[in-house]
Simulated assay, not measured.
Amino acid sequence: MQEILDTLANNSTWAYALLFVYSLGGGMVAILAAALLCASGALDIYLCVIIASVANFLGDEGLYYFAKFNRKQALPYFAKHRRKLALAQILFRRYGAWIILFKKYIYGLKTLVPIAIGFSKFNDIKFCVINAICAIIWALSLGLIGFFAGDLVNIISEKIGANNSLFLLALLAILGLIWLYFSKASKKKV
């Protein structure tokens, strides 16, 4: 495991670039993984939070403006996601700006909510300000959770000692199960 951390520390530019690209479309797993690496000293937590929040902000802004200025051209591409767009519209009407924050944590709605808001007549500046605040809150909360979980992981890893590869496989299996749960939970039930 130490070899992986050393490799990441020596190539941190690529890790930060990957975090940026992945955070454009959501990035929950990326910021958690980066924060775990920050706890081990491979990356800088402040830089990871800044990169993730800026990328998440830019990704949502891009989706919002894409929907706002390309409504007629974009609607046919979302025909398969009509139910999810309708749900996003309902949630937006019911909860208002709060849905912009909560959707950042909900798998399956992360990309559709800014599109649904872009299809509406929501104020551009208001969306920009709310989105910026929500992106910072999102990156800070997940970054801190991942960082403190990383401290716990490091303590457990030190106790295990020679079985670091087994620990890494267990950690990857847990992340895979979390991803599987969220992907199944967001599927339409027939």
Rank of each mutant, 00 (worst) to 15 (best):
L8Q: 07
S12E: 12
A116G: 11
A97Q: 12
A74D: 07
T13W: 10
W14V: 07
G62Q: 07
I174P: 01
S12T: 09
L43F: 05
D44T: 04
L5E: 13
I174N: 03
I125D: 07
Y46K: 03
V153K: 01
G161I: 12
L172M: 09
I125T: 13
R82S: 08
D6M: 13
W179I: 11
A162P: 00
Y107R: 08
A42Q: 05
F92M: 05
G118D: 13
V21T: 10
M1K: 12
A30G: 07
A139N: 04
A67W: 00
G26V: 01
A162Q: 05
Y22N: 14
K68F: 08
S40T: 10
Q73T: 08
A135I: 10
G96C: 03
I45W: 08
W14P: 01
A34P: 15
A33P: 08
G25E: 15
A55K: 01
S183E: 15
Q2P: 01
I178G: 00
W14M: 03
F127G: 05
A42K: 02
Y22L: 15
L152G: 14
K84D: 00
H81G: 05
A97E: 08
I51H: 02
A185C: 04
A185K: 15
L58Q: 05
D6A: 15
G96I: 04
L91I: 04
F122D: 12
L144Y: 14
N123P: 02
H81E: 15
S120E: 01
V49A: 13
C48R: 08
Y107A: 06
Q89A: 00
R83W: 00
C38M: 07
A67K: 01
I50Q: 01
V54T: 06
S40K: 07
E3C: 12
E61F: 08
N56W: 12
L142T: 04
I31E: 11
R83M: 04
V190L: 02
I155S: 08
A139C: 07
A33I: 15
K110P: 03
L43R: 13
T13Y: 13
G62P: 00
L36A: 14
K68Y: 11
R94Y: 03
I136N: 03
K72N: 09
D124Y: 02
L152I: 14
G96M: 05
A185R: 15
L152F: 14
L168W: 09
V54N: 01
R82P: 05
A9P: 06
S120T: 04
L87E: 13
T13V: 09
K189M: 09
G27E: 12
L91R: 06
K110V: 00
P114T: 11
I90W: 15
K72Q: 11
F182D: 09
I99P: 12
F182I: 08
N70C: 00
V153A: 14
I174K: 01
I160V: 14
L166S: 12
I45F: 08
L18A: 13
I155M: 05
A17N: 04
I145D: 05
L91T: 01
